[in-house]
Simulated scan of single mutants.
Amino acid sequence: MKRVFKIAAAVGLVGALLAGGYLAYLQVNYYRIADHQKLTVTNLQRAQLAVDHPYTATTYNIGFGAYNERYSFFMDTGTTKQGHHTRGKYGKATSRAAVQRSTTFVIKQIKAQHPDFALFQEIDTNSTRSYHVNQVRRVAAAFPHLGRVFASNFHSAYLLVPPTDPHGTVRSGLLTLSRYQVQSAQRRQYPVSTHLIEKFVDLDRCFVVLTLPVQNGRHLIMINSHMSAYDRGGKMRAAQLKLLTGVMKQARDRGDYVIVGGDFNHALGKQIMTHFRTNQRVPNWVSKMSNQDLPAGFRIVRADNYWTTPTVRATDTAYVPGKTYTTVVDGFIVSDNVTATAHNLATHFQETDHNPVKLTFKLQAE
Rank of each mutant, 00 (worst) to 15 (best):
K2W: 11
A8M: 09
G12Q: 05
G12L: 04
L17C: 09
N29M: 02
A34R: 07
V41H: 03
A47I: 02
V51Y: 04
A57P: 04
T58I: 02
N61F: 00
A66W: 00
N68R: 04
M75F: 02
G78T: 03
G83F: 06
H84N: 15
H84C: 15
T103E: 00
F105H: 15
K108D: 06
F117R: 12
F117P: 14
A118D: 05
V139I: 07
F143C: 02
H145C: 10
N153F: 00
A157M: 01
L159N: 01
P163K: 03
D165Y: 02
T176L: 00
Y180I: 12
Q181C: 14
I197V: 11
E198W: 01
E198G: 05
L203R: 13
F207D: 05
M222R: 06
M222A: 15
S225F: 09
A229I: 06
R232H: 11
L243N: 09
M248D: 03
Q250F: 11
A251D: 10
R252C: 09
V258R: 01
I259N: 03
V260L: 06
F264Q: 00
N265M: 08
K270T: 10
T274V: 13
F276Y: 07
Q280V: 07
P283T: 08
M289G: 03
N291T: 03
L294T: 10
L294V: 10
G297E: 03
Y306R: 03
T308W: 07
T311H: 13
A314W: 07
Y319N: 09
Y319F: 15
G322D: 14
K323F: 03
I333D: 03
V334C: 04
V338K: 01
A340H: 08
A342D: 05
N344A: 11
T352E: 06
D353M: 08
L359A: 07
T360H: 15
F361D: 02
L363K: 06
